[in-house]
């Protein structure tokens, strides 16, 4: 009965945003990211793989949160959500929440991407590298050296990812703004 209403536009937008984000973030990662242990750069292929992994991770986590939280909405919030999903409208009161949740999404996704990237590097170590890293850690402990280098790599990765995230969010916001402008001034086009 309702099969004729499909979320195809959401899927199309998601694919577009995902490709934009991966392209931009891979470019930033490839230029700026330094990998331990010897501050090597990442290859373009590696950068695309890293960017795809962390972006897909945030999207999947986001969908999981949305799909599980939407069932808990109060009726009032649910009308607002339906209004937004089906008719692309929001009232001034929801605009505030949209902006706030945009900020929260930005920082949450940044933290998620950072955690994801660190875990990903850990996951992709070969057995030899894993062994070498363990040795290194053990030696450091014995010599009483604080793991400064570890902190430095994390902070390098964090600042690179923050930049990448900011750039990709800017691009996506620009696309959304463009759509809004086209919508407002050329209603016949779409």
């Amino acid at each position: 009965m309702f099969v004729s209403v499909l979320p195809l536009r959401a899927i199309a937008f998601q694919i577009l945003f995902l490709l934009v984000a991966i392209a931009i973030e891979a470019w930033v990662l490839q230029r700026r990211l330094r990998l331990p242990p010897n501050q090597s750069r990442v290859s373009p292929k590696q950068a695309v793989q890293y960017a795809s992994s962390v972006n897909l991770l945030t999207i999947v986590v986001g969908w999981f949160l949305f799909l599980s939280l939407q069932a808990l909405l109060t009726p009032e919030l649910k009308y607002q959500l339906l209004n937004f999903v089906f008719f692309d409208q929001w009232s001034p009161s929801t605009a505030f929440w949209v902006v706030l949740s945009g900020f929260i999404t930005f920082f949450t996704s940044f933290l998620l991407k950072l955690g994801g990237l660190v875990q990903l590097q850990q996951m992709l170590l070969t057995p030899q590298e894993l062994e070498a890293r363990r040795e290194l850690d053990k030696n450091k402990h014995r010599l009483g050296v604080r793991p400064i280098k570890g902190i430095r790599t994390i902070s390098n990765q964090a600042s690179v990812l923050l930049l990448a995230n900011a750039l990709s969010y800017t691009a996506i916001s620009a696309i959304l703004l463009l759509r809004f402008l086209v919508r407002s001034f050329l209603p016949a086009v779409l």
Binding site: S4, P7, R9, A10, F87, R179
Partner: peptide, 18 residues
């Protein structure tokens, strides 16, 4: 909310109506 189907969904950014 079946009444939503009695309306135009043309503006939606999420769904299309076939």
């Amino acid at each position: 909310y079946p009444s939503l189907l009695g309306d135009s969904l043309g503006r939606s950014a999420f769904v299309v109506r076939l």
